[in-house]
Amino acid sequence: MANPKIVLATSDVASSALAPADAELFGTIIDAWTRRRIGSLRHTHKAVARDVSVLREFAAHSGLPPWLWNEDAFDCWCDHLGLERRLANSTQRHYQCSIRSFLEYLTTNVKFRNEIRRLYGVEPRQICTEENCIPHTVEKESSKERRAFTHEEIELFFDGLRRASVEAGRFRTKDYNPLRRDRTFFFTLYSGGLRISEGLNLNVNSFAPNPALPELGPYGFIKVWGKGSRGSGKRFRTVPVTHPDFPELMDWYITRVRPEFLHRADPNEEALFLSERGTRLKSSSADARFKIATRYCGLEGEGLTPHCLRHSSVTHESLRFSIEMVRRKHGHASAATTQGYMHVPDVMVDDEISSVVSRELDDALNTQEKKE
């Protein structure tokens, strides 16, 4: 059965701008589309409700049922989104994709196509094409461009946290345990290339041994529920541990630091990273702690955010492993997305070119000398 909230939204669609008979059929089609996405495709209620609201908006703007939608009406609506409402490119593209996805369903559904042909004598068709939709690009479209830490900055960041925690312990300040927790939390984000939500949702049992690397002990893999695509909800993946320091740090945290946060916690609490109240650490608190960390290490005001640690992981791992390995580790659907996270300095590229070309020139000269 469809979500009641979503059914209500489809009723709004039906009553907004269409004749009663058109509205009734439109609502029936959307209800079927909704059940399919939530049922067999396992899309989230939130994602489906969002797309239904887009359909409602386009229907109201055009005054047409979907079997009469056309390119002119679509272009007019897109102009409204971009020129009048001034929505971001990524938002406009999502709206366009919602219309395209719905029309893909409608134009391939034999039952509804036959019903529309019987009642109206027309065939529904796809009106969204490469020519009238915003293309997906790997460049960042947000106004705030995120960057990666340099190797020097990442060392400065974690060394600053370590020194701050040592000093807090020496003077017995209340920030002693939070700083030790922060050091482990942010290193987990960096070494695993995790999104902040993925790190916050980790539990004490979110690890598994890697049979190929028994020396890592129980911390060979990190088990993560990460971001899905196209409204499919969270997806599970295992992240290989590639930093030799991670197992020792995590074992230290779980055995010596986390117990300090359990005094006020529920006896059955499984969250890996806890607040001072003994509950799972929240995103707002993690953001605030990150700002404190950048202040301790002298990187305040550099435009860094917790998500920069994920960018840093992709960038630094790309210097150690193939792009395919980096893509899989970070849960990207395509290598193009992975490349969008890479921030390799021009000087590093120039040095690599010079090194490779010089080596090949030397080999060529040595080969020529041997022939002579």
Rank of each mutant, 00 (worst) to 15 (best):
H94D: 11
L119G: 03
P124I: 03
R118A: 12
N114K: 11
L83H: 00
I99Q: 04
I99E: 00
N132P: 00
L81S: 02
E141G: 12
R146V: 13
N89G: 00
Q96H: 11
L106S: 07
T129N: 06
Y95R: 15
C78K: 08
K111F: 10
L81Q: 09
F74T: 07
R125L: 13
T129Y: 02
H94L: 14
Q126G: 04
E123K: 15
H94K: 14
W77D: 02
R86L: 10
S143Q: 11
R85H: 09
K140D: 11
E104F: 15
S142W: 13
D75G: 02
Y120L: 01
E141H: 03
T108C: 08
H151L: 11
T150A: 08
R93A: 11
I116W: 02
L81P: 02
E115A: 08
E130G: 09
F112L: 06
E141C: 03
S142Q: 12
T150L: 07
R85Y: 07
W77H: 08
L81D: 01
N89M: 00
Q96D: 03
T137G: 08
I134T: 14
I99N: 06
E84A: 08
P135T: 02
F74V: 09
W77K: 09
L83T: 00
R125H: 15
Q126H: 04
H136R: 12
T107Y: 04
I99L: 15
H151P: 08
W77S: 04
Y105E: 06
N114F: 07
T108L: 09
V122M: 10
K111V: 11
S101M: 14
T91H: 07
D79V: 01
S98M: 13
Q92T: 03
F112A: 01
N132Q: 02
R146L: 15
H136E: 13
Q96S: 07
T91K: 08
R147C: 05
R125Q: 15
A88W: 02
Y105P: 06
Q96C: 01
E130R: 10
F102K: 13
R93W: 03
T107L: 04
H151Y: 10
V138Q: 05
N114E: 13
C76G: 03
H80K: 07
R100I: 11
C78M: 09
D75C: 00
C97M: 15
L87Q: 07
S143K: 14
R117V: 01
T108F: 10
A148S: 14
S143P: 00
I116P: 01
Y120S: 05
A88D: 09
F102C: 12
Y120K: 13
F149P: 05
T107G: 03
E141L: 11
K111E: 13
